[in-house]
Design a protein around this nucleic acid. Structure first.
Lengths: 244, 244
DNA sequence: CGAATTCATTTGTCAGACATTTAAAAACCT
DNA sequence: AGGTTTTTAAATGTCTGACAAATGAATTCG
């Protein structure tokens, strides 16, 4: 393999891309051991620190894992759904916080995706998913629950709804949408009144899922979306009034 | 800032996490310049190569960018939707190829999400989105089109449908689902007969979007999903018969 | 034969050096 | 004085060489 030393990119970036391409194309199968750092350095005709920087780039994307010792080295990592969840959540969170995405836009995307899961969840959810939803609703009604705990419970409720669809690819896609919204949601659920309303809507959703009533679930989710957006508008308007 | 040299993790991983947390929490705003590598090395009490490995990890996630020269350094990067698309596509592709996700599961997730976009797209799509969809349908009918080109056109068609919803967060989420399916789709669209059927369904979808007929779009998308799944089943069955 | 030890391999970390890029400061010429 | 060229300083990019630490395998010893 060869690397262009006159490219605009770093050597380590080029090497990382070359290895990444080999992994994506299947040339390097899962659990395959890469050559040692010294061997890679010789193959690419660069120094070991440069190879190491390339490997760290790949490790940051969970594409490889490394092990020390005699039989150690860098191995192609099987990307698990859990790894992917984490990356998706980090990326989605930063995307929303850094790009001035309006609350309504984020909310619309989230509920559109969630409504897509609802019919599948109504059809297939297990007893455990329903039990989780009920338990989280109960927790949300506890007096003295902090805003952070309420939002975490809210996330858990919606995760259970999504997981009920029994499709890990969908769960992965939704993880980012649901969890990345949490910081934004934190701003608008600080009054006791809004909690009551949200709990009532959650109950409607759980009822619909329990009775495999997909249209009712869709209706309740739409209502929750409308209510959430309205709350956000009120909060923003009140803030503007107070500061203006 | 301090780092635990006895942790199970690499020093560079710990340092990367510390800086990542600072970015996510907002302590380090967009375009803020990080201390120089030499200063970071002193602050964390490690060597410069270790700091560099940490920075490369962050660069791999598009969290920072670096610039050489007198006023250069590492800057907190604004994560663009485009960057996020790319990461999402890479992650989704590997997730599907490494985890023995069934074609049907992936297909279900993709069409569930796409059907979630369709009503919004029917309501809001611009003339450009519709024009793109029509142009791609026309291309798909050209004789002598390679399988790869047909699939690329298929992706472009569905991207236009999704982008028509006018919600960048949705487009971002769907990018992974649609593009990651392309390698899988490549396997099943190699006969002229299947192309005709797919083109007919694409036309139904475009018609529905043009006339803001959300239910019709949903029906056509469902039909396309069913047809795709059936094609995949046939292809798999035929392969089993030929090899068995 | 089994347990302890040695050994070789590989990643993790460090120190120091030089190359390259870049913008600002200084010097210079008109 | 003004504009151009040169110099300089600061920062990242890369290399060399070395040592530490972990780990499995080979070896030695009881």
């Amino acid at each position: 393999m060869k690397i262009d030393p006159n490219s605009s990119k770093d050597l380590s970036a080029q090497i990382a891309q070359a290895i990444r391409d080999a992994i994506i194309s299947g040339q390097l199968p899962v659990d395959k051991r890469l050559p040692s750092e010294a061997e890679l350095a010789e193959q690419f005709d660069v120094s070991r620190p440069t190879v190491r920087e390339a490997l760290k780039r790949l490790a940051a994307q969970s594409l490889i894992r490394t092990q020390r010792g005699a039989t150690g080295g860098a191995f192609v990592n099987r990307l698990t759904f859990e790894d992917a969840y984490g990356q998706q959540i980090t990326t989605s969170t930063l995307l929303l916080s850094m790009n001035a995405v309006s609350f309504e836009t984020a909310c619309e995307a989230r509920y559109a995706l969630e409504r897509a899961c609802a019919p599948l969840s109504a059809e297939r959810r297990g007893a455990d998913h329903l039990a989780t939803m009920r338990a989280e609703i109960h927790r949300q009604g506890q007096p003295g629950l902090s805003d952070e705990a309420f939002c975490a419970s809210d996330v858990a409720f919606h995760r259970a709804l999504v997981d009920g669809a029994g499709n890990p690819v969908l769960s992965y896609q939704l993880a980012g949408a649901v969890e990345a919204m949490q910081p934004l949601m934190n701003m608008i659920t600080f009054t006791a009144r809004s909690r009551e309303e949200i709990i009532a809507l959650h109950t409607s959703i759980a009822d619909a899922i329990e009775h495999a009533a997909a249209p009712a679930a869709d209706t309740a989710l739409s209502a929750l979306q409308r209510y959430t957006v309205q709350l956000a508008r009120d909060v923003i308007a009140e803030r503007a009034a107070r500061s203006g």
